[in-house]
């Protein structure tokens, strides 16, 4: 069932992909093949494979139950939140928030999860920023 859905999605995407490749306007071209051909070949192969998947889907392992799905969705939200606030809140604040939530999601007691995230964020900030000289955001929020 899920294989079929994926097959339809991929066929749809590759039709759009192939169609937009067909629409490319190429002002000048030095070689016989040009920038259109390769994407068109890929799109054609993907459409064929997608149809193959629709006709012969696999039997799949059971999916997570409702509680598992809720946990996974929560993890996705936390990661998107971390990504969106990383630059704005700065490394330390964003890591404390996301780190404690993720720790809690993986079964740590709330107080411990927060304490661990604070230590991780502060130590990580100085190790990554000063020791490894990586680009660690201080946070646009704080100036």
């Amino acid at each position: 069932m899920y294989d079929r859905i994926l097959g339809f999605v991929l066929v749809g995407v590759s039709v759009v992909y192939g169609w937009s490749a067909y629409q490319f306007e190429v002002p000048f071209q030095y070689e016989p093949l040009g920038p259109k051909a390769f994407p068109l070949i890929l799109a054609a192969l993907m459409v064929m494979s997608g149809i193959g998947l629709i006709f012969r889907p696999d039997r799949l392992a059971p999916f997570p139950d409702r509680k598992g799905l809720a946990n996974l969705a929560l993890a996705c939200v936390i990661m998107f939140f971390y990504a969106a606030t990383f630059r704005w809140f700065g490394f330390i604040l964003a890591t404390v928030l996301a780190g404690s939530l993720i720790g809690w999601l993986f079964g740590a007691k709330p107080v411990r999860a927060v304490a661990y995230a604070v230590v991780l964020a502060v130590v990580g900030y100085f190790v990554c920023g000063d020791l490894l000289r990586l680009n660690v955001p201080a946070g646009a929020l704080f100036g």
Binding site: G99, G103, A117
Partner: peptide
């Protein structure tokens, strides 16, 4: 425990990609 491991992995990936 994974509760301590996973936040650390996330931190590494985010710092790495952001840099």
């Amino acid at each position: 425990r994974q509760a301590y491991l996973v936040p650390f992995i996330l931190l590494l990936t985010f710092v790495g990609v952001y840099s």
